[in-house]
């Protein structure tokens, strides 16, 4: 675990540190800005699917999907990230008692 933490931290730090050093050189590159704008949404959706693949059973997959949907709807309704997260968490935990 410790080597993994160090490797992960080193990569993360490099990703944050190097751009600060070269900031002025590339800040006006439009293609890079466009590329950066496209990345997050798709990567997050891939990560959602990744977590769904980890489900142990069809029942757990159903609970995850239900809770994620509730979480997103509550977030969109309240405009509050945390409220959405907690709502999904509650739905997921409580549905575990039923299925």
């Amino acid at each position: 675990m410790i080597p993994a933490i160090i490797v992960c931290a080193a990569v993360t730090f490099s990703l944050r540190f190097v751009p600060v050093l070269v900031a002025h050189r590339y800040r006006d590159r439009e293609d890079l800005q466009e590329f950066a704008a496209l990345l997050p949404a798709g990567l997050m959706l891939i990560l959602v699917v990744y977590t769904l693949l980890e489900a142990d059973s069809g029942a757990q997959l159903g609970r995850l999907l239900l809770a994620a949907a509730v979480s997103v709807l509550v977030k969109l309704g309240t405009k509050n990230f945390l409220v959405g997260f907690v709502a999904g968490f509650l739905v997921y935990s409580l549905s575990g008692l039923l299925f």
């Binding site: 959602v48 977590t51 995850l64 994620a68 997103v72 968490f89 575990g96």
Partner: peptide
């Protein structure tokens, strides 16, 4: 209690919606 298994799915689902709304 397996509630924490939702943390990742919930986090990424919400971040996905945020990111898509801003794209």
């Amino acid at each position: 209690f397996d509630g924490f298994d939702f943390a990742l799915t919930g986090l990424f689902s919400l971040l996905f919606v945020d990111a898509l709304a801003g794209a």
